[in-house]
Amino acid sequence: MQSYIIRRLLYFIPTLILISVISFAIIQAPPGDFVTTLAVQMEARGDQVDEDLINALRARYGLGKPLWQQYLIWIGNILQGDLGVSMAYNQPVSRIIMDRLPWSLLFSFSAFIIVYSIGFPIGFLSAVRQYSILDYVLTFTGFIGLATPNFLLALVLLWVYFEATGQALVGIFSVEYAVASWSFGKFFDLLNHLWIPALIIGTAGTAGLIRIVRANLLDELKKLYVTTARAKGVSEIRLILKYPVRLAINPVISNIGYVLPALISGEVITSIVIGLPTIGPVLLRALQTEDMFLAGSIVLILSVLTLVGTLVSDLLLAVIDPRIRHGV
């Protein structure tokens, strides 16, 4: 167990470094450095280019030095909380991200809850009632969920919501609460705005999870240990919950690593369609405007979060599965 955890943590480090290198490469990808770009932009707007500012920025980010030194300076700055400057917003990247990341996390986490709280029971029902009408209906719905693109689903739900309530579902708050201070009303308004985007973001993941749970449970239900338990006189529902479900949980947990990236990319698209103040639209805009510090930092942060999620799922596996714990 111990050596498993230590090894898993050690694997985490090189992956982390690799991700940071890739993010740095994204930042470096456009021709020229960002300070030159900044100067050109300022000139184009007719602003006065402050040579001192330019030189200070060059020094701060080590521009002109070899790439590896620039990388080290960049990493060093990040460790001190400085992610660089966004040219499009003309703000420190860290502030932009801090403004929006909590919303992103809120939406992704809500979607995550939806994925597991809907996907698991449905997959379970589908498996224990295999080939029943219920199973066919659920499986079919799952396929549709898997096949529908997020943006389409978002548009359809927006329209349905508008038809039903006469209100447009855009943003996180209704107009009356947008600038109001926190109150129960505002909180419920938030919840009201939260569930539809969360549902949209989680649809594909839910459908995928249904399939995984169903397939795994069906596999486990055929195993001999289930027959053994039945032959002991254990009641059907009890034995299913105790044995096959317990074993089918493993792949579900290791699946977290795949669900997270799907949630994040789903969040990007959905937020753009619904106009949510999350990281997603910022990332798109940063890429369009070659605002590379912003784009690189967002990629870095999202990747690290995914990595952490995977790490957590691996450690969880070790906790619940004695075979991993005992290194079989």
Partner: peptide, 23 residues
């Protein structure tokens, strides 16, 4: 279910597969 295990007990071929590995 009262008969199973209580009156008639059964043992199976694969001792590995007939136990749950995580209990």
């Amino acid at each position: 279910r009262k008969l199973r295990g209580g009156e008639i007990a059964m043992i199976f071929q694969e001792p590995m597969a007939s136990f749950s590995p995580v209990h």
